[in-house]
Design a protein around this nucleic acid. Sequence first.
DNA 1: ACTGGTTTTGAGCGATCACTCAAGTTATAA
DNA 2: TTATAACTTGAGTGATCGCTCAAAACCAGT
Lengths: 205, 205
Amino acid sequence: MPRTARHDYAISLERAAHLFWEKGYHACSLKDLEATLDMRPGSIYAAFGSKEQLFEAALMTYYQQLVQGMEEVLEAHERVLEGLSAYLRRLATEATGSAGAQSAPVSACMMVKTLLEVTADTPGLSHTVNQLFDRIESDLTALLESAMDQGELPRGSDCARLARLWQAQIMALRTFAHREVDAASVEQLAEDMVVLLRSSSCREV
Amino acid sequence: MPRTARHDYAISLERAAHLFWEKGYHACSLKDLEATLDMRPGSIYAAFGSKEQLFEAALMTYYQQLVQGMEEVLEAHERVLEGLSAYLRRLATEATGSAGAQSAPVSACMMVKTLLEVTADTPGLSHTVNQLFDRIESDLTALLESAMDQGELPRGSDCARLARLWQAQIMALRTFAHREVDAASVEQLAEDMVVLLRSSSCREV
DNA sequence: ACTGGTTTTGAGCGATCACTCAAGTTATAA
DNA sequence: TTATAACTTGAGTGATCGCTCAAAACCAGT
């Protein structure tokens, strides 16, 4: 009996995530969202509640795709540390656009952009993005612990500390790539980070 | 004959820089600036032209203070690499608030925040922040080259590449510190970065 | 065709946005 | 003291902000 919905919830979320990713929270207006989602304000609010809730849902969507992309690279490599290195390199090539034509609107990470943009007047968003970073950090820690179990890291390595170091490199690489800088610099930077992290993983941390 | 100005240009700029640093460009309204500067819109526009111009001037102020702070640390150390390491550690302690009660509104770098926030609809700001990053990068490169001349780095080191690596670590440390994370993690991260960069400076890069 | 539950629409709400300008205020030079 | 030039004021500009809601449009079951 009901009228069938014209829009797919997941697809709309993905489009919204793209727009928010590119423009940020404050610079993205409802007008922009209306155009991108091809929805009128009433429909948007019926589906998502508010701009802030929509952003939060979009950020979750982004996070899931981020994790998925990371897992894909990791699964393609035997050793964990090789997988992480490959992921860093892939981020570099994706950022410079010299690869796969992935649909990233900007090379910087949406989570980092959000972390740096949101202030005290949107405590919900601040809490959400902090939670997501915590999840990534603990997942990375667990991943490195499994690597240690398989002998890739010396026993007794501080995997939480190592995880933060990896996380920092990923954040830095993508932020650096956001500058108007030539592709070679970004790829060299990724390579240098890989060398650094390899040496740090094999010695005492 | 003229009426004396009630406000000092430099002080107003510094206050504006602080506010913009904390809230970002878009989330900072003229109302906020009026309150912080204790100036009415007419005075603000007479003195600075527009919100965008004011932000640009505030960013320049921030940049100058950033460079000055960096030079202070560098001059306090004999060797360049020691100075840079000390600077990283100082950023960590400043970010966690466990030190000098420096008046940073947030631990993240205003230049990085700006780099990630500004979009195509403010090309002037985008150009300015990119220029500033280029200046920092070339200054860092020159600094490392002088270190190489003094034997701190092996002859033939790619100082530009090393400079980007240092820059990335600084960006990452401060961005990481922007999370709701305990002080020990930030200081450990800085320490790990120092170890990493030391080992990378002594080997082939 | 009709009905009923569901979704979409878009004009328009009050609030706030960046910004302007004519009038008022103030300190100095004459 | 007065005139003048510089600075400050704040009410008010049109535009845009996030958001609401009554009405229209739609599709399924009868």
